[in-house]
Design a protein around this nucleic acid. Structure first.
Lengths: 136, 136
DNA sequence: AAAAATTTGCAAATCATTCGCAAAAGTCAT
DNA sequence: ATGACTTTTGCGAATGATTTGCAAATTTTT
């Protein structure tokens, strides 16, 4: 199945994301950036590369509750993001990972007490992050 | 500003949602249902009514992270408590309340470690319930 | 029943994202 | 590096959920 080729395109995107500590960008942000740098990459290609980098576990893709736009953030080679829950700020969209001993017992409770199989990818915890609370 | 009229349309939708214990439906589900019942309601009207019922607090609108479709579920009679989290079966729609000591430490972790304010009524945990797992 | 306000149907528009397909570029064995 | 093979790219058009503009229909108020 689908070997990965090393292309200039993916490299440019990855560098862009890695250079900006965990910040979230949508496809349009990337397109605008490329345009500013006079790097030419088609819109479909941008989407395809974002998807590939997401599959490779380098980017995390999320959506704000309020719109349909996909946002991507660099999460290194964190293969972790697939299995655990996240909480998202309803104001700024920031994603925080939920892990650690508390979450272990949470998962244990859900799986072994309630006998539910949790689907982290379909689940969304919504809240307000400290930064956005401060700004109010 | 914008008083609410009582219309047949909204009533039909509300009845549909109330009749099916908290299960999640998207606009297309509603449209299909209306079509089966030979009730005629335009797609734009369905969307407008879903939005109005959501504004009125009768429906909760959520989106799965993995797709762009909006899902609605009835929460208007307060049967779906607003102060704590729930997990819902993606197959049958059953809702289970999450409470107890494990959830207390979960809430403590989110509020005092991460400093997030969780919004339980906007958050949805999705999974599969034991009954539906057995049936597979 | 008339006037005022809101809701409806319809078709077209939006907007992010995806598709089909031929051309271009990356990879590998020779 | 040459050719064979595979994956990626660009392009324009298509998709799919949702929204919009507007005139007609319905509901509420007077």
């Amino acid at each position: 199945m689908a070997r990965q080729y090393h292309t200039k395109g993916k490299e440019v995107l990855l560098t862009y994301f890695m250079g900006s500590t965990g910040k979230r960008f949508c496809a349009k942000d990337v397109l605008d950036y490329l345009n500013d740098c006079e790097i030419s990459m088609n819109q479909a290609t941008v989407y395809r590369n974002l998807e590939k980098l997401t599959e490779e576990g380098k980017l995390l893709k999320t959506k704000n509750p309020s719109d349909d736009t996909g946002y991507y953030q660099y999460v290194g080679d964190g293969s972790c993001c697939r299995e655990h829950l996240h909480i998202q700020c309803k104001v700024c969209g920031k994603i925080v990972h939920l892990e650690g001993p508390v979450m272990d017992s949470f998962n244990d409770y859900v799986q072994n007490k309630l006998n539910f199989v949790l689907e982290p990818k379909e689940s969304v915890l919504i809240g307000k992050c400290p930064d956005c609370i401060d700004k109010e």
